[in-house]
Write a protein that binds this DNA or RNA. Structure first.
Lengths: 139, 139
DNA sequence: GTTGTTGCAAATGATTTGCAGCTGT
DNA sequence: ACAGCTGCAAATCATTTGCAACAAC
């Protein structure tokens, strides 16, 4: 029900595809999803949805501030629910695993670095790339 | 002459397109160039080169360690000469301007964050996005 | 009943690949 | 000569857009 309100609030009609995408983000254990990810899950759930719609909805949600878009080196954009709390990401270049972290000192210093070059920061997000040592590391 | 050696050293024949691309990076005032950038400059210099060759050469140079590839939010990859010295980047989301910086404390802390999640860092590079306040800010 | 939305197909932009011919060594 | 390169055209991948049919309010 809250989702319906969120959508109206953003000036968007509460349509089936949109509600489904929102609930997917709220219920998936993976916080970071790509358009393709979402499209596949919806198809498997029997929805009759088009990939183009998924892209459109994701972009609208981003503009509405419901989602945040990230471009990790993977080549495909991933989205996560915007739950206010700021954090940064560490991404596995091999399997795509994403972890979140926050370090106040880094925040302060990146702001200082930006200021030094006359840059105004948009969001403070920053991404670290590595290889995760977890067992599977594949997808 | 050194370029010829560098190429041989990497197991690559010293061909015209390759030498031209290398010298472009060495002589351009812009350290960060995309495939398209390089292709256009070469065409304007009267070279008879194909865009596919530029892409191939850039990838080979990256694998040989001569160049480093970055995927900033722009959607197109940019490359820079690998001159050993590690540094990070701050990129303007509006005009694409790229500045370089280095902060030992940030390095230390990103390493710590990575370790906490069992990630082994590849290179330590990290990118900050913002809007530069410089006058033109267009391209 | 409008106006906003959707699915589909075709278009786009960046990058890759197949292939016949050309070029360093 | 021979393997390694190259340009060109066609292919691929992620994403966008045009459009007629359709669903919210």
């Amino acid at each position: 029900m809250q989702d319906q309100k969120d959508l109206k609030n953003a000036g968007l009609k509460a349509t089936l595809p949109r509600l489904k995408v929102l609930s997917l983000f709220e219920n998936s254990k993976e916080r970071h999803l790509s358009a393709e990810d979402i499209y596949k899950v919806m198809l498997n759930s029997g929805e009759d949805v088009g990939l183009a719609t998924v892209y459109r909805v994701l972009t609208q949600f981003e503009q509405a501030g419901l989602l945040v878009r990230h471009h990790f080196e993977s080549g495909k954009a991933v989205f996560e629910l915007n739950q206010g709390g700021h954090h940064d990401h560490i991404v596995c270049m091999k399997c795509g695993r994403v972890e979140e972290f926050y370090d106040a000192e880094i925040e302060k210093r990146q702001e200082a670095a930006a200021a030094k070059f006359g840059f105004k920061m948009q969001d403070h997000s920053l991404t670290i790339y590595g290889i995760c040592e977890k067992q599977p590391c594949d997808k």
